[in-house]
Design a protein around this nucleic acid. Structure first.
Lengths: 86, 86
DNA sequence: TAGACATTTAGATTATTATCTAAATGTCTA
DNA sequence: TAGACATTTAGATAATAATCTAAATGTCTA
């Protein structure tokens, strides 16, 4: 779960997840939402992908990213346990 | 919420929260659970305190730390929203 | 009130991370 | 198949963060 927490620690990466909530987007579309270079966004995407918070599917020359919230379950479980809500 | 995510990104700090789940502990008690110097743990505690994930109460020469899970609510809400469970 | 103890602060070092520019890779289409 | 476009990789730099030792601060008690 460490990769997940590390990935969530950066505000840009959390914003990317927020963007993907509404619809899947290409790397370029995502980058266009930020005042940051494409390689920087590409790096953030690779961190999110390594944490399995996003999925990447190649469609021709585009790579379409989508949200994967399955690991949120583990985080939520950990938090609820800390709250004593086993 | 950035401070919360930043605070949660470090495994030592998450372990400290796990420790405090069972009972409140002094800074020294917490430090004794780790193979790290007391100043390092003190630094981690200050980051957790800044994020409001722990509360610190002075009792004589001891400082007793306790878990504060109120902000977890915000994190859980954010995650559920991303999952489309508004 | 001197000394022991608990904790933090200060300052330095090292490791990690975020970001950039330039270049490489792969895909589409005229 | 040449060139345009989408994305990533490589390599460098700068900002953050984790950790340590040494010292300071505050509190208790003999």
């Amino acid at each position: 779960m460490n990769d997940v927490f590390k990935a969530l620690a950066d505000p840009t990466r959390r914003m990317i997840l927020d963007l993907l909530k509404d619809k899947d987007l290409s790397a370029g579309d995502i980058a266009n939402h930020f005042s940051m270079t494409k390689p920087s966004i590409s790096n953030h995407l690779s961190i999110l992908k390594k944490a399995e918070l996003v999925l990447a599917e190649k469609q021709g020359q585009f790579i379409i990213y989508s949200l994967n919230t399955t690991l949120f379950q583990d985080v939520i479980k950990w938090m609820l346990e800390l709250r004593g809500e086993t």
